[in-house]
Design a protein around this nucleic acid. Sequence first.
RNA 1: GCGUCCGUGGCGCAAUUGGAUAGCGCAUCGGUCUUCGGAACCGAGGGUUGGGGGUUCAAAUCCCUCCGGGCGUACCA
Length: 576
Amino acid sequence: MILEILQSRFAAALTGLVDDVQPLLELIRPSQDPKFGDFQANMAMPLAKKLSKPPRDVAKQIVDALDIDDLCQPPELAGPGFINLRLKEEFLAELVRKSLDDEDRLGVPEVEPADRKTVVVDYSGPNVAKPMHVGHLRSTVIGNALAKMLRFAGHEVITDNHLGDWGTQFGMIIYGYRNFLDWAAYEKNPVQELSRVYRIVRQKVDEPNKEIADAVLAETAKLHAGDAENLKLWKEVLPNCTDEIDRIYKRLNISFDYVLGESFYHPMLQGVVDELLQKGIARESEGAVCVFFDGQEVPMLVRKKDGAFLYGTTDIATVEYRMKEFKPDAILILTDFRQSLHFEHLFATARLLGYDNVELSHIKFGTVLGEDGKPFKTRSGDTVGLESLLDEAESRALTVVKENDKAGLSEAEQRETARRIGLGAMTYADLSQNRESDYVFSYDKMLAMNGNTATYMQYAYARVRSIFSKGEIDIDALRKSGATIILSAPAERALAIELLKFDDALRHALRDYRPNVLTAYLFELANRYSTFFENCPVLKAEDAAVRTSRLLLCDLTARTIKKGLELLGIETVERM
RNA sequence: GCGUCCGUGGCGCAAUUGGAUAGCGCAUCGGUCUUCGGAACCGAGGGUUGGGGGUUCAAAUCCCUCCGGGCGUACCA
C-alpha cells in the first residue's frame, strides 16, 4: 500500500524524462538499514546513464520535482544517487487506520479487473498405487498455498489434482495382484498390501528381470487397450486407493475443485496422437510416435511402439481439456524439478498446437533427500509414509504443549492445539524454504518449533490474543472507536511499517510463485511485534490514548498473522 | 558427451532479480525478569559469497574460464 502511493508520486515526478516509468518505479524499495530511512528510491543511477548526466544531479532533479511533503520528511540524497525517504507518523497512522477498518482484506487491494486471471493450479498428483510419502507433501503444501494466495489476490483459481491412476505403475499392481497377493492381508488392509506387492514387482523390474518387466508392460498395454479383465481389476482396486488418499487430504485440510486423474484423459489420447500426426507436429521414429524440437536431440514420445500412450500424451490431452473447459490465462503445474525437460517439451508442443495465449508454468521444487544426499528412503528402502509423519508431528507437539501449558487447557484442547502446531510446523518447514532447493529430510528440522517456524508465529499470535482476554477488551468497540494511532515509540513505528508491507509481501511472493517470501515477511512481522511487546506496555500504557492505540496495533498484528498463516494453509490457536 | 540447476560463517538457509556495511535460524558464549505469556527479548564471536578473470558508478546476482556436486538425457511418471 505504501509502495503504491510512493510510486504514484514518483511517477508524476518522472513524467517526461522517460517513456516507460514503470521499471524505474520498481526501484522504490524498503531500506534495509534504518539509517537510510524507511524506503529508498534507486532509479537515479540507471536513469542517469540514459540521460548521460551525473546520477546525483538526476537524483536532485527528481527530488525537486517530487511532491511528497505530506507523506515524508524532506528526501535525502546519499551515495551515488540514492533517494532516502522517511515517512511521517501521520501518514503511517492513516494507513494503519485504513487497514484496521478493512475487515477481510486488511488493506490489501484486489487486482484490477483488467489484471484478473483465471488460473488452473495443478498440484499434489500422487500415484494412487502407492501410499503418499514425504515427497508428495511439497507439491501439496506449496500448491495449496499458492492457490489460496492467488485467490486472495483476486484471481479466479481452479485447483485440479492430476492423480497418477493410469500409468505403468498400474501394470505393476496388476501383475503383482495376480502373482504375489496375500489375500488375507488384502482383505485387512488393501492399500498396504497393494503397496507391498507393488514394491516386490518394482524391485524385480529394477533388478532387472526382463521377463517380469515385459509382463508388466504387457499388462499396462492391455489395460490401455481396454482389456476387460484388467479394467475390472483397475476398477476394483482404485476406490481403495483413493479412499486412502482422501483420508490424508482431510487430515491436511486440503481439498480440490477437480480431481481429474490420468485415467480421465484416456479416451482422448488416440485423438491427441492423430491430431499431432495430422498437423505434422509429430512423426514416427523407431516405431514410436514422437514430437521433435529444433536443436534438441531427444523428442517427446506420445505413443510407444507397443501402442501404449505415455505421460506426455496424457499431459497434452490435459492441456487441451483445460483450455477448452476453463479457458485459463495461466496453468501452473507443481512437480519435482527433475521433470523440467518433460514440461519444456510439453509446453513447446502446446505452443505448436496454437496455445500461445496462456501462461504455462512448471512450478518446480527440489527433491526431499535422505541424509546420504539421495532421494529420501528409510533404512529398509521404504519411503516415509505421510501418515506416520503426521502422527509424529502431532505427538511431538503434544509433548511440548503439555510441558508449556499455563492456560490450563483441557485434554481435548491440548490435542487440538497439538494438531494445529504439529501440522503447522510441517507445512511451514516446506513453505519457508525457497522451493527450488532440495532439502534433506529430518524430523527435527521439519518439526522444529524454534526460530523461523510456524510455532513461533502461532505463539506470537496467542500472546497478542491473551492481551485482549486478560484486559477484557471489546474488540469491535475498539475498532469502531476511530481512535488515533500514535507511533511515537520506535518499536511502534517499526511495527506499523511492517504491518503495512503485507500487500507488498503477497505481491512479491506471487510474482515468482514463492510462498517463502510470505513466510519471511510473517517472521519479520512476528519479530517486530516481539520487540514492541518487550518495549511497549499495552494494558499498562502511560495513558488511555496510548493504550488504545497500542491495542489497535496488537489487533492488526493478530489479524495479519492469522490471515498470512491462513493463506499458507496454517491454522492459529487462541491459547497454547 | 550434451543440456540444466547449484556451490553463501560449524550446520541449515535468505538476500524483493544489479543497489549502500551480505541477512536470518540452529549451535556456541554473555546479558535481561517484583510489569500485559520466558515457546520471549537484547548482545557477542564467526564470511575474500568454490578459485581466477571480466562488464558496471555498483556484482552473491550478469559474461568467460577452471574446480566440485545434483538432476535430466527415446518408449517410467
